[in-house]
């Protein structure tokens, strides 16, 4: 009666509904993103020339950190109330289910970053020509960050430790995303073709989509053992 995707839809719908029941938690990554971006002009100087040069790196660094913020809870709350056991034992393919959970997480924590990015870009005096590249880059890069983060979250779910360990595990692995993403924006600012780094981001996303759900599922099983 059940195709492999039916479980996907059910879990996605449940996690989205849950996210809307906790609106405060949902808004946190977005606020964090805005806050980190706002801290840089305060720490550096409000000079447009300077801000324009650091903007790609600042925006991408802020996106990286804020998409990690909410990840700690991705599996922890399901682990704590026993829903995770029920998912693992539901008879559906676990990689598909964890992919649904990660997608739901990205939709409430990654997608808003993509949408609000032009606003912050203009605050850092990034020229409008580069906004499209920034958004496209974030659109291709943040799902990979969510997948990497989900693996880190699954590995640390059964532990008492907080999110510091999670960041230590995930940030080194996420450096290529940061490099390609920021470089793409840089190229667009200089009026050059940013398509190369964007292709690389897309390639990494597909690699992550095909391999990481298996790793996340394995990690979930380990943390339940």
């Amino acid at each position: 009666m059940n195709g492999p995707l039916s479980g996907f839809g059910v879990v996605l719908a449940r996690d989205l509904r849950l996210a809307f029941r906790r609106p405060g938690e949902m808004a946190n990554p977005l606020l964090f993103f805005i806050l980190i971006t706002a801290i840089f002009p305060l720490g550096l100087s409000p000079e447009p020339e300077l801000l324009r040069t650091v903007a790609p790196g600042v925006l991408w660094g802020a996106a990286l950190l804020s998409s990690l913020l909410a990840l700690d809870l991705l599996f922890r709350s399901d682990y704590g109330d026993g829903s995770l056991e029920q998912l693992v034992l539901s008879g559906h393919s676990l990689p598909v289910l964890v992919l649904a959970k990660t997608l739901a997480h990205w939709m409430v924590s990654g997608l808003p970053l993509v949408l609000v990015a032009p606003l912050l870009a203009s605050a850092l005096y990034l020229p409008p020509e580069a906004w499209g590249t920034l958004m496209l880059g974030l659109l291709l890069g943040t799902p990979t960050l969510s997948l990497l983060g989900a693996m880190g979250a699954a590995l640390t779910t059964g532990l008492g430790t907080g999110s510091a360990l999670l960041s230590l595990l995930v940030l080194p692995l996420a450096t290529p995303i940061l490099i390609f993403g920021a470089r793409g924006v840089d190229l667009a600012v200089q009026g050059m073709d940013p398509v190369g780094p964007l292709y690389l981001l897309a390639a990494i996303l597909f690699l992550a989509l095909s391999l990481l759900p298996l790793a996340i599922a394995a990690a979930v099983r380990i943390s339940l053992d």
């Binding site: 693996m151 590995l155 059964g158 692995l173 391999l211 790793a215 394995a218 380990i222 053992d225």
Partner: peptide, 15 residues
């Protein structure tokens, strides 16, 4: 558990 969890991380890392 430590073996399996950290092993998984090493395998993902080496890719």
């Amino acid at each position: 558990k430590a073996d399996r969890a950290s092993g998984l991380l090493a395998v993902v890392g080496v890719v």
